[in-house]
Lab assay of single mutants.
Amino acid sequence: TETYTFDSEDQAEEFAQRAQKKGYTVEKRKENGKFKVRVE
Rank of each mutant, 00 (worst) to 15 (best):
residue 13 E to N: 13
residue 19 A to D: 01
residue 40 E to W: 15
residue 40 E to R: 12
residue 9 E to Y: 09
residue 20 Q to C: 07
residue 16 A to C: 09
residue 15 F to L: 03
residue 14 E to W: 09
residue 18 R to V: 10
residue 21 K to L: 13
residue 1 T to G: 14
residue 20 Q to P: 01
residue 5 T to A: 06
residue 10 D to R: 09
residue 33 G to S: 04
residue 7 D to F: 06
residue 18 R to F: 11
residue 3 T to G: 04
residue 31 E to S: 05
residue 32 N to P: 02
residue 9 E to T: 03
residue 20 Q to N: 07
residue 5 T to D: 06
residue 11 Q to G: 06
residue 32 N to F: 07
residue 17 Q to P: 00
residue 7 D to N: 07
residue 2 E to R: 15
residue 6 F to K: 00
residue 15 F to Y: 05
residue 5 T to R: 03
residue 27 E to G: 05
residue 36 K to G: 04
residue 15 F to A: 03
residue 8 S to W: 07
residue 5 T to S: 09
residue 17 Q to E: 12
residue 15 F to T: 02
residue 14 E to V: 08
residue 2 E to F: 15
residue 30 K to I: 12
residue 24 Y to H: 07
residue 30 K to W: 13
residue 11 Q to A: 14
residue 38 R to N: 08
residue 39 V to A: 02
residue 17 Q to F: 09
residue 24 Y to M: 08
residue 21 K to A: 13
residue 18 R to M: 13
residue 10 D to A: 13
residue 22 K to T: 06
residue 23 G to P: 01
residue 36 K to F: 15
residue 11 Q to I: 08
residue 18 R to S: 12
residue 19 A to K: 06
residue 23 G to K: 02
residue 14 E to C: 06
residue 17 Q to H: 09
residue 3 T to P: 04
residue 27 E to T: 14
residue 2 E to L: 14
residue 36 K to A: 11
residue 30 K to M: 13
residue 5 T to L: 09
residue 33 G to D: 07
residue 1 T to Q: 11
residue 3 T to M: 08
residue 2 E to W: 15
residue 11 Q to M: 11
residue 29 R to F: 15
residue 13 E to D: 14
residue 5 T to V: 12
residue 32 N to V: 03
residue 28 K to Q: 12
residue 37 V to Q: 00
residue 38 R to W: 10
residue 18 R to L: 14
residue 6 F to P: 00
residue 32 N to R: 04
residue 21 K to P: 01
residue 19 A to G: 02
residue 1 T to L: 10
residue 19 A to Q: 11
residue 31 E to Q: 05
residue 25 T to A: 10
residue 21 K to R: 10
residue 40 E to N: 12
residue 35 F to L: 03
residue 31 E to R: 03
residue 30 K to T: 11
residue 7 D to C: 11
residue 18 R to C: 14
residue 17 Q to S: 10
residue 26 V to S: 03
residue 25 T to P: 05
residue 18 R to D: 12
residue 17 Q to N: 11
residue 32 N to E: 10
residue 21 K to Q: 13
residue 26 V to H: 02
residue 33 G to L: 03
residue 8 S to A: 07
residue 19 A to E: 08
residue 9 E to V: 05
residue 39 V to R: 02
residue 24 Y to F: 13
residue 4 Y to H: 07
residue 32 N to I: 02
residue 3 T to S: 07
residue 39 V to T: 04
residue 27 E to Y: 13
residue 35 F to Y: 12
residue 31 E to C: 07
residue 17 Q to Y: 09
residue 17 Q to V: 11
residue 35 F to D: 01
residue 24 Y to T: 03
residue 23 G to V: 00
residue 12 A to E: 00
residue 7 D to K: 04
residue 34 K to E: 06
residue 12 A to Y: 02
residue 7 D to A: 07
residue 32 N to A: 08
residue 40 E to S: 15
residue 37 V to T: 00
residue 36 K to S: 11
residue 19 A to F: 11
residue 4 Y to W: 11
residue 13 E to H: 06
residue 26 V to D: 01
residue 20 Q to Y: 09
residue 33 G to E: 06
residue 33 G to P: 01
residue 23 G to N: 03
residue 24 Y to R: 04
residue 8 S to L: 08
residue 35 F to T: 04
residue 36 K to D: 04
residue 36 K to R: 07
residue 10 D to C: 02
residue 39 V to L: 11
residue 1 T to D: 11
residue 16 A to I: 10
residue 27 E to S: 13
residue 23 G to A: 02
residue 30 K to S: 10
residue 21 K to T: 08
residue 19 A to T: 06
residue 19 A to N: 05
residue 20 Q to G: 06
residue 28 K to T: 14
residue 25 T to Y: 12
residue 16 A to G: 04
residue 31 E to A: 05
residue 34 K to H: 08
residue 4 Y to I: 04
residue 27 E to F: 12
residue 29 R to V: 15
residue 22 K to V: 07
residue 28 K to Y: 13
residue 38 R to C: 05
residue 26 V to R: 00
residue 35 F to W: 15
residue 38 R to H: 10
residue 28 K to P: 03
residue 25 T to R: 12
residue 23 G to H: 03
residue 21 K to F: 08
residue 4 Y to K: 03
residue 34 K to D: 03
residue 12 A to L: 02
residue 32 N to W: 04
residue 9 E to M: 07
residue 3 T to R: 03
residue 29 R to G: 09
residue 28 K to D: 02
residue 34 K to W: 07
residue 24 Y to K: 05
residue 39 V to Y: 03
residue 10 D to S: 11
residue 9 E to W: 11
residue 40 E to A: 12
residue 19 A to H: 08
residue 5 T to Q: 07
residue 18 R to A: 14
residue 26 V to N: 01
residue 6 F to G: 00
residue 18 R to W: 15
residue 20 Q to W: 08
residue 32 N to K: 07
residue 12 A to G: 02
residue 35 F to G: 00
residue 36 K to M: 15
residue 9 E to L: 08
residue 6 F to S: 00
residue 33 G to M: 04
residue 6 F to M: 01
residue 1 T to S: 13
residue 10 D to L: 10
residue 28 K to L: 15
residue 20 Q to A: 13
residue 34 K to Q: 10
residue 40 E to H: 14
residue 14 E to G: 05
residue 12 A to C: 05
residue 29 R to S: 14
residue 4 Y to D: 01
residue 39 V to N: 00
residue 18 R to T: 11
residue 16 A to P: 00
residue 12 A to V: 02
residue 22 K to M: 15
residue 21 K to V: 08
residue 25 T to K: 14
residue 8 S to P: 00
residue 15 F to S: 01
residue 39 V to P: 01
residue 1 T to A: 14
residue 21 K to W: 08
residue 2 E to M: 15
residue 5 T to K: 03
residue 13 E to K: 05
residue 30 K to E: 14
residue 14 E to H: 07
residue 30 K to G: 07
residue 11 Q to K: 10
residue 16 A to V: 09
residue 38 R to V: 15
residue 17 Q to D: 11
residue 30 K to V: 13
residue 28 K to M: 15
residue 24 Y to A: 05
residue 14 E to F: 07
residue 15 F to R: 01
residue 37 V to H: 00
residue 14 E to K: 09
residue 13 E to T: 08
residue 29 R to M: 14
residue 26 V to A: 06
residue 33 G to A: 04
residue 9 E to G: 04
residue 36 K to Q: 14
residue 5 T to M: 08
residue 17 Q to M: 11
